[in-house]
Amino acid sequence: MTAVAHSTTMGLDNRKLGMWVFLASEFLFFGAFMSAYLLYIDTTNRGPGIEIFDIPFTSVSSFVLLMSSLTMVLAHNSHLRGDMRRMRLWVLATAGQGMVFLGGQVYEFTVFFREGLDLTQSPFASSFYFLAGFHGAHVAIGVLLLLGLYSLSLTGKIKPGQDVKTEIIGLYWHFVDIIWVILFTVVYLIPELRV
């Protein structure tokens, strides 16, 4: 009578299906920002352009975000096995890496801003800050979700059998990660080669 996976038409959990449906639409969201960025990549209005990027620094934070996907999937794996203590540990590790990534982005933006890449400087600046910034906003939401997951499992609101909740948050987290896989290549690395 309820939304349990095996009593649904397709035998899938509603919430998981819903998350996948939502993620499908997110590609269109990031794609639009990305096309604006690609269109404006040389429209710097005499301000700083892509030469401002600090590839070694961004590589490190990209690596951190990539590895957070590992801890996320380990958190889900622990939850699946009912090991809530270890699950919480991995969740916290994931959130921590997410925050490191966010800190890196704040630092990066601050440096760029000091070097003259103001949002109002050029279409290139606007589109870069929006593309990277909205990805950052997604990471921030993910961190909030993870912290929520952590605290709710601490108070016993999320129980060993409810691994689908960790899985859904994980799906979101991995999605944000693969978006960054694309952005890191398209926004940072390929333009640097083109120069």
Partner: peptide, 10 residues
Amino acid sequence: KFIMVAGSFM
């Protein structure tokens, strides 16, 4: 990388 993360982690 995309396919690996989507295929295994997701």
